[in-house]
């Protein structure tokens, strides 16, 4: 349902993304991994047209996003940023209600309010509904942003490091929520992730980016090999296969390994 064709993006004079091709199918979770600065976030932002790609096309169900109105695109693609700055106080309920913006011009309907209320309940945010967003913990904030994207009711979800600031339990909770929502709705999700183990466990496809180019892509166990990780991250790892899910254990950086072998 989502295709990225030969996408190029330059920031000033530096190529950030070069010839990126991705395909996302219904019911699929695709994770983008890669070192800092590889272009993960930029790729997500190009898909949702926060950035305008210099060349290449992004197609959603065959329609090119460049030709869509922003509000129509917002009905197809939801985006969860890494963090959300909040300059002015805002209630959690209102923060989630913003997800209904593509469907509401002025007054949210009963249905909109009900959707938000149900989401807050499901995600265990009920008791914070009328609290200030800024007073929440990192994990709760992340859930609120996720709830906002769910409220947007899109078939495609883009998530920028949804688990980066979370403790172990919240990480799993958030990933399980995304996974459930994708499977139940037949939606598709693209995640930018740092945690290779979390990515391997929850994704159907992994795309490994290095310096703006796709280094390799495929099923987790084909992508997560010691050679690939060594080449892209410069880190030596050992990989245990646990029921077909690769488990990555970092050993040392390649530089350190060379010092030792000298």
């Amino acid at each position: 349902m989502l295709q990225v064709h030969e996408l190029h993006f330059r920031y000033k004079n530096t190529a950030v993304l070069t010839d990126v091709r991705i395909e996302l199918n219904k019911g699929e979770i695709l994770s983008i991994v890669g070192p800092n600065g590889a272009g993960k976030t930029t790729l997500l932002k190009c898909i949702v047209r926060i950035f305008k790609p210099d060349a290449g096309r992004v197609l959603i169900n065959g329609i090119e996003t460049g030709n869509m109105r922003r509000i129509d695109l917002a009905k197809c693609v939801g985006y969860v940023p890494q963090s959300s700055p909040s300059k002015f106080p805002i209630a959690v309920f209102d923060a989630v209600l913003m997800g209904r913006r593509p469907y509401v011009t002025w007054k949210p309907s009963k249905k909109d309010l009900q959707i938000v209320a149900d989401l807050l309940k499901v995600m265990g945010l009920e008791e914070f509904a009328l609290r200030d967003f800024d007073q929440l913990s990192g994990g709760q904030k992340q859930k609120v942003l996720l709830a906002r994207a769910f409220a947007q009711d899109t078939d495609i979800l883009l998530l920028d490091e949804p688990t980066s600031n979370l403790d172990l339990k919240h990480q799993l909770e958030v990933m399980e929520m995304i996974s459930r929502m994708v499977k139940e709705k037949g939606a598709g999700a693209i995640l930018a992730v740092h945690d290779l183990n979390l990515a391997s466990r929850f994704s159907d496809t992994i795309v490994m980016l290095n310096a703006g180019k796709i280094f390799c892509k495929g099923r987790p166990r084909d992508v997560m090999t010691a050679e690939n990780i060594r080449a892209v991250y410069g880190v030596e790892v050992t990989i245990n296969q646990d029921n077909g899910t690769p488990y990555i254990l970092p050993i040392r950086t390649v530089e350190q390994a060379e010092v030792i072998s000298d």
Binding site: K45, V48, R49, I50, R70, A74, V77, G78, Y79, P81, S84, P85, S86, I90, A95, M98, G99, R101, P102, Q152
Partner: peptide, 9 residues
């Protein structure tokens, strides 16, 4: 909510 979130919405 930030320019980027607003655009995405």
């Amino acid at each position: 909510a930030g320019d980027e979130s607003a655009k995405a919405l």
